[in-house]
């Protein structure tokens, strides 16, 4: 369930803990923190030192 809007967030095959998915209802970026059952937290916002 999306922590932002309570929508059910589908988890596709192959998704792993630590991945970021998008809520289909509110477009929030969510980090997968559990898979059985699926659990999400809001993904941390981009920081100035992120990159390649």
């Amino acid at each position: 369930m999306c922590p932002e809007c309570d929508a059910q967030v589908p988890v596709e095959d192959g998704v792993e803990r630590g991945e970021v998915v998008t809520c289909p209802e509110c477009n929030a970026e969510l980090e997968v923190v559990g898979l059985d059952p699926p659990r999400f937290v809001l993904a941390p916002p981009e920081e100035v030192d992120w990159g390649e």
Binding site: E46, V48, D49, W50, G51, E52
Partner: peptide
């Protein structure tokens, strides 16, 4: 450009 930074930011 920022001295540190990436992704065209």
């Amino acid at each position: 450009k920022p001295v540190t930074g990436s992704w065209g930011r």
